[in-house]
Simulated scan of single mutants.
Amino acid sequence: MAETPSNMLPLGTKAHDFKLLDTVSGKKLTLDDCKGLEGTVIMFICNHCPFVIHVNSKLVQLAKDFKSKGINFVAISSNDIENYPQDGPEFMKKRAIDEGYIFPYIFDQTQEVAKAYNAACTPDFYVFDSHLELVYRGQLDDSRPGNDVPVTGEDLSNALNALLHNMPIPQYQKPSIGCNIKWRPNKQK
């Protein structure tokens, strides 16, 4: 399993708007529909990545823990479904229901949103404050499939708690590690 790190979008970057299909509700959602009053976590994930599968239950738990505090989560899958059909919308909906996602699981068919966020891997995490400015991008925690480190969500939850308590979020942030986003091949005419 190849390990790809986050590209580490510059802190302070404004969140890029989108209008994408939520695979569970069947509705097109925008950033404004998904954002939280106090902050927003945008995650690039997919169905088949072992790094995402490894942390799925913790993502659900964190989303539940922070929703009542004004932090909303949204998951985006941008993988090429022609070569990775298991990451298609119908399978995304099933995964969201099976895992108990309380957040939208939206499909970036054109991959333009992943490009706008400079996303590189799954999972890739971005935390935006109430003004939709990036305050954290990096790993969930130090756990990886097979490294025997427990999944705690420590890095992400520490950033969210700091945001909620108006405390500084450390500038040094460890990149997330995961499978590379499966980019569609350029089909030039």
Rank of each mutant, 00 (worst) to 15 (best):
S143T: 00
K35T: 00
F91T: 09
E112T: 07
G138P: 07
S176Q: 10
T40Q: 07
K28T: 07
P5L: 14
N166V: 10
P168W: 13
V151G: 02
T110D: 15
T122F: 01
P5K: 15
K67E: 12
V74L: 09
A114V: 02
K174L: 10
P10G: 05
S6E: 12
D98W: 07
M43Y: 01
P170S: 13
A96L: 08
D17R: 07
D87Y: 04
D108M: 11
V151C: 04
N161E: 15
K67T: 08
N158R: 15
K28S: 09
E154R: 14
L140Y: 08
S68I: 08
S6Q: 12
S130V: 11
G12S: 04
W183T: 10
D87P: 05
P5G: 12
M1F: 00
D80E: 12
K115D: 11
G36V: 10
F91C: 08
E99P: 02
D142K: 12
M43F: 03
K64E: 13
T40N: 07
Y136M: 03
G100Q: 06
S157Q: 15
N180S: 14
I53F: 00
L20F: 04
P104G: 05
S57F: 06
L160H: 02
I71P: 06
Q139Y: 08
I106M: 15
E82Y: 05
N7V: 10
T122D: 01
V60T: 01
A120S: 14
N83G: 13
N72Q: 12
S143K: 00
T4N: 03
T30V: 06
G88M: 04
I177C: 01
L59D: 04
N161C: 11
V127A: 00
D129R: 03
D141S: 02
Y136R: 02
V41M: 04
K93A: 12
M1P: 00
V74D: 04
K35L: 01
P50F: 00
A2D: 14
L20C: 05
H131M: 14
T4K: 05
D108P: 11
F51T: 01
E90C: 10
Y136H: 04
G12P: 02
D108K: 12
P89M: 07
I181D: 06
M8Q: 14
L59N: 09
D129T: 04
D65N: 14
T152Q: 10
R137N: 14
R184L: 14
Q86F: 13
A119N: 03
C34I: 07
V24H: 11
Y126H: 12
G39P: 00
N147A: 08
L59I: 15
V149D: 09
P50E: 01
P170M: 13
A63W: 05
F125T: 09
L160G: 02
G178L: 01
D32Y: 09
A2K: 09
K58I: 08
